[in-house]
């Protein structure tokens, strides 16, 4: 599977559009989830995903190491989401006020479960800073190790550790606020 994808990346680098289409199929889930979790807006996430792949299509011939494709693509998506987020910031803030609807969970027992009942994870995620959200998503959803995140975002390993911890603490605070 990995070898197949590597071969597809090589073909796509040469300009083979069918190969590139296969790459989109293989990575659209990863890219879309990442964009959606950072932007919390389906339409915007779709736009960013498409933009990221178009950007990838034109920049792919310049990619030196095919094995670095996924982390490179993740960096492209992250940058696009940061840009998009700047544009949407004010709008998103206003929308997030309206979005807070209580979702009750039956027989909630632990404090986290009780707080989840008050606010969904997605809503709470919207309240935490983008830098914190990004490292948490890279870890939880994309499954990157701390050292990979450090390399990908070009920040020290200690910063990754503390940022993930702060993100979790802030997320919990938001969930407890309800």
């Amino acid at each position: 599977m990995v070898n197949d994808l590597h071969q597809i990346i090589i073909e796509a680098k040469k300009g083979d559009q069918n190969a590139f289409r296969q790459l989109v199929t293989a990575y659209k889930g990863t890219v879309f989830r990442h964009a959606f979790s950072l932007l919390n807006d389906r339409m915007e996430a779709e736009d960013v995903t498409q933009e990221a792949f178009v950007k990838a299509y034109y920049s792919l011939p310049k990619l030196e190491n095919e094995f670095a494709f996924v982390s490179w693509l993740t960096r492209v998506v992250t940058n696009l989401c940061y840009d998009k987020n700047k544009k949407l910031n004010k709008k998103k803030l206003a929308e997030s006020e309206e979005l807070i609807e209580n979702v009750r969970m039956p027989n909630a027992s632990s404090p986290i479960e009780q707080s989840i009942a008050k606010m969904t994870i997605k809503e709470a995620m919207e309240k935490i800073p983008l830098e914190q959200k990004n490292v948490l998503i890279l870890r939880e959803i994309q499954g990157y190790s701390y050292s990979e995140i450090s390399e990908l975002l070009q920040i020290p390993l200690g910063t990754v550790k503390s940022r993930i911890n702060t993100a979790r603490e802030n997320l919990r605070k938001e969930l407890e606020k309800g």
Binding site: K28, F32, R33, E46, I141
Partner: peptide, 14 residues
């Protein structure tokens, strides 16, 4: 986030 539906026609749009 794993429950999020992935757009089916993404390839066509791209």
């Amino acid at each position: 986030y794993l429950m999020v539906d992935i757009p089916v026609s993404m390839e066509d749009h791209v």
